[in-house]
Nucleic acid binder design. Structure first.
Lengths: 150, 150
DNA sequence: AGATTTTTGCAACTATGTTGCTATTTCGGT
DNA sequence: ACCGAAATAGCAACATAGTTGCAAAAATCT
């Protein structure tokens, strides 16, 4: 877990300022963790990777703040461990607009956003209305498929 | 929460025997809870509805057993509360085959299986393979929509 | 730099989920 | 209907996850 370079330091600071959030150590560090790697992170993942640098409560609150401001979004799961991933720029204060699906790899156990796969329209029976659609695909990811062929 | 009639008593007993599970009070009661109402139930829901009749651990283990035997299936959620719903007959020992989507109502907060809505095929990028697809739609359900019009 | 506002860390608490062990219940055979 | 073997339930203890109130510390504004 590399320390922040000047460049990433500036990047996370900018992201926070853009959301009019005060720039604090924990926010910078947690945001950096998301930028450092492609997958989604659970609260527990962050706690481990931050290495006891912050209080658990701070991490909970920071994640909640990021979700509220549209910096990250939640990904449901079947194992009682909500994961969080960075949002693209379209998400703003309290509004999340996600058209992509989420992929859970059974090999590396990572969860990714597949931005290039758009959620299809789901036709519901009469009387039902749709607010939001979440698509969770489980399988083997690209990296793990390649790794296995070797 | 009505006590089991002779008819439902027989029904749950038959369901359990069909899976070669021993017929115990807790299994009968928990299965009955699922049959009594249309929505999905979380562990907590069952604990409440069973009214302290069984130990928490028993409920956890019973749910796990039911999932293993294909009597019920899990539904992921974004609020760290896995829900369980009855399976149709196609699910057997260790194999779950679900083609339906799940609907979460924002009004009544219930989760249902929409058996009539089939999960679409999702085309993934090269290198990814699919084991399972879970579709979670959030919105307002039929009952709540009707209730509001009155 | 100082006042104000926001955020953090701590403590305490609730809820959720797991494991090992023993007592009880269920089931198959008679 | 009863008995022994096997499965299940309950208990205790523990582990993990998430919440709230409050005082100390840090960030922001001017």
């Amino acid at each position: 877990m590399p320390r922040a370079t000047a460049a990433t330091e500036k990047k996370v600071t900018d992201l926070l300022k853009r959301q009019t959030l005060s720039v604090t150590e924990s926010r910078k560090r947690i945001l950096q963790l998301f930028l450092e790697q492609p997958g989604a992170l659970s609260h527990g993942d962050i706690e481990k990777r931050a290495g006891g640098m912050f209080d658990r409560v701070t991490i909970y609150r920071t994640l909640q703040t990021f979700v509220d401001r549209g910096l990250i979004h939640t990904i449901p799961s079947a194992d009682n461990a909500i994961r969080y991933a960075l949002c693209k720029d379209e998400c703003g204060d309290g509004h999340h607009r996600h058209e992509h699906i989420h992929f859970v790899c059974t090999e590396c156990e990572q969860t990714f956003c597949l931005d290039e796969v758009v959620t299809p329209v789901i036709r519901l029976p009469k009387g039902y209305s749709t607010d939001q659609i979440e698509i969770l695909v489980q399988g083997k990811c690209k990296q793990c498929t390649v790794a296995e062929r070797r």
